[in-house]
């Protein structure tokens, strides 16, 4: 069964919040109503976002790593927020596995937000209904857009390509391949929610350089001995021109 989802590569996420702002921009401009920002310039501002980026420090100083962690609805395969909804406003689509809220049916009882362990559902202060990531459902099927742009806004915005989008149940998709080959994992697996969104772990990047790789051993000028062998530190022709 088709299950659209995001695969987020924590190894390359730089925490720039471009996904947050592009998500807000796209989803606040749609026909479903804006994502309210209350008191934006007041004392206690608050707003609705589908996607937020958190920052964690892992390890003990000085051996620490900073992990930027984008979090949006994980579109669980067994979403705990759906069965608790008393009105049926919260539902999971059969055709592509996206978990959505019908804003016209939602009564704003907040029970689904209690039933989501990830805290990705937010009550919109203006519309008084529960809102969450839609995987840009109004964009990914829009045939008036060029095919390359039929992706969630966050994916298109990511400058480091940390966000992959696709059908995680299709073994040939980019998303499923990344999960399979790069150790993709799910959040809070202890609750059996089977989140569709996966995260790719941090990787240790280390290159091994041997001594002879530092010397231009394959410099043709040196090889043919047309000139006296230059010193190691001296500039060679390679540095000033390109053949």
């Amino acid at each position: 069964m088709k299950q659209l989802a995001l695969v987020i590569d924590l190894n390359v996420c730089v925490g720039c919040h471009a996904c947050v702002t592009s998500c807000k921009e796209w989803n606040t401009s749609g026909t479903a109503g804006y994502l309210a920002d209350m008191n934006p310039f007041g004392k206690d501002p608050t707003g609705t976002f589908f996607n937020r980026v958190m920052t964690f420090e892992v390890g003990e100083f000085p051996n620490t790593e900073t992990v930027h962690f984008p979090k949006s609805c994980l579109h669980c395969e067994d979403p705990p927020c759906v069965p608790v909804c008393p009105t049926g406003a919260s539902y999971k689509r059969d055709e592509d596995g996206i978990v959505l809220v019908d804003y016209d049916k939602c009564i704003g009882c907040k029970y689904c937000s209690w039933a989501c362990p990830y805290g990705v559902r937010e009550l919109d202060e203006h519309q008084k209904v529960m809102k969450k990531c839609t995987l840009c459902v109004d964009r990914i099927y829009d045939e008036s857009l060029p095919e390359a742009e039929r992706k969630p806004a966050c994916v298109l915005a990511c400058p480091t390509s940390a966000r992959l989008f696709g059908d995680v149940n299709d073994p040939d998709s980019e998303a499923a391949t990344a999960i399979r080959e790069r150790g993709g994992y799910q959040l809070m697996p202890e609750w059996g929610t089977k989140p569709a969104n996966h995260y790719l772990p941090r990787r240790r990047t280390r290159i091994t350089i041997h001594e002879d790789e530092l010397v231009r051993a394959d410099n043709p000028l040196k090889k043919e001995r047309q000139l006296p062998m230059p010193d190691k530190d001296e500039q060679t022709l390679d540095d000033v021109t390109s053949w």
Partner: peptide
Amino acid sequence: TAIGVRHVRIEQKSQGFMAGSFNTRE
């Protein structure tokens, strides 16, 4: 388990926004 990093010492440095939100109130 929340962020899937296996290290005994993890500390949150930022939640990504300074204003309040539904998540920080409810």
